[in-house]
Design a protein around this nucleic acid. Sequence first.
DNA 1: GAAACACATCGGATAATTCCGATGCATGAA
DNA 2: TTCATGCATCGGAATTATCCGATGTGTTTC
Lengths: 109, 109
Amino acid sequence: MNVDTALPALAALAHPTRLEAFRLLVRHEPEGLSTGELVDASGLTQSTFSTHLAVLAKAGLVKSEKLGRQQIQRADIDTLRGLMLFLAKDCCQGRAELCEPLLAELSCC
Amino acid sequence: MNVDTALPALAALAHPTRLEAFRLLVRHEPEGLSTGELVDASGLTQSTFSTHLAVLAKAGLVKSEKLGRQQIQRADIDTLRGLMLFLAKDCCQGRAELCEPLLAELSCC
DNA sequence: GAAACACATCGGATAATTCCGATGCATGAA
DNA sequence: TTCATGCATCGGAATTATCCGATGTGTTTC
């Protein structure tokens, strides 16, 4: 993950519909959800949501898989992790004191 | 950090100029940089960059302080940490296996 | 084959971003 | 006081994002 890959990922998440859809997919890992279920959850038109999904997919945050005539969407945790590492990298370089509190809170996992 | 605070933060970072400026400020913690220095680094007009800086400030990612007639800008690491925790929260809830690799890589700090 | 279904894509209208020059408003220097 | 400096804000033009209905494509069912 670098600036060129982080920017589309940030832009993809910087929209209420897409952020909510992505979080929903993360909570439904690893089974995923069909596009139709996501459309229903969004409350938007099918065509509108489809373009949102395309933005998430292009950013690498969502991968899809065909299952019969529906499309199963799944969150790509590796990309999310890459984005978080990219954001953390700057403050971690030689300045551990800045990221220690983050590690402490993440240790809940 | 919740959806309402994460969305402006994501949108603020989802722009090449603002992302670069924020990363520059993180690397210059805790001294900070003046607005003029950031303008020079951006290559944009002073007025254009000022509006970008206002977006970062409104999202809580940058705090400023007056020093004579210049304005010292500093990255707010707490907000960055809050954003990362918000993104990580979903995948950590009851599914530690998803976040363990993140912790492993972050342990470089 | 025909119809129904799930989803993607196109066309176009509206709204929001982005960018700049010009101007305003403080602060420090002469 | 007068002038220069550093920065914020205003007004407006160009670009981009967002949203929807309509249509196209592939898949299952009858």
